[in-house]
Amino acid sequence: MLVAQGIRKRFGGVLALDGVDVAIQPGQVSGLIGRNGSGKSTLFNCISGFLKPSAGQVRVDGRDISAYPPERIVACGVARTFQTPRVEPRATVGDAILCGFYTKGRSNWLSALAGLPRAVREERRLREAAFLLLERLGLAEFAHVEIGKLSMGRVRLVEVGRCLAAGSRFLLLDEPAAGLTREEQSVLAEQIRRVAADGAGVLLVEHNFDLIRALCRDVTVLDEGRVLYAGASAEVARDPRVVAAYLGTAAA
């Protein structure tokens, strides 16, 4: 289980997160919603090691990873996407997905340099895995296309695919469905369900309520750095505090 407890993050005078608790169970998809500026990305950054929490702890199966650098956290099987996909426009889709498999390789520099059979076999294995992933995401036909030429929706799918490649145990998805067509959204939802069924835990940040309700059994609502609500996603739309926060007190 991935547990973030009492996460506080201060930037100078601004308290971006004020004692946030969130937990991800293996095999389950949990939602994280909130208005822009409520601290979702900051929380992601704290969990994935890109920011150090001012207070609080992040634990994976009991191990405290709060002070780990991002790459070490990925090595623990926790991977994330970026809200604005970080991609190299001239790289091909296949290469981008392949890069996500970095931690799945075992060959060292020397065997790679020498072109030892062990390294060659590993490379082939990684490429096969990458191709399979591309097929599952419906991106196989774009394997050799430069990312810069794709629609934003497909670029986000590539970003998610890269995360799927790297993360084996916990995935943090930051608005993966933004800009996707209905078809692409259903492919994405299917992939998220599948990866959860394989045993991974997913934390899904989304503004798309339908997707949250379809995928997540429970959801956490953040508002101004605090947890406003943590419970069943079916009930969240009815909670008066959530409604007030999203729509403003006038509408409540």
């Binding site: 890109f50 650098p69 990925v74 090595a75 991977a79 970080r86 931690t103 790297a166």
Partner: peptide
């Protein structure tokens, strides 16, 4: 940052 997110030291 992208490299770190891929797990690269």
């Amino acid at each position: 940052a992208r490299a770190r997110a891929d797990g690269v030291d």
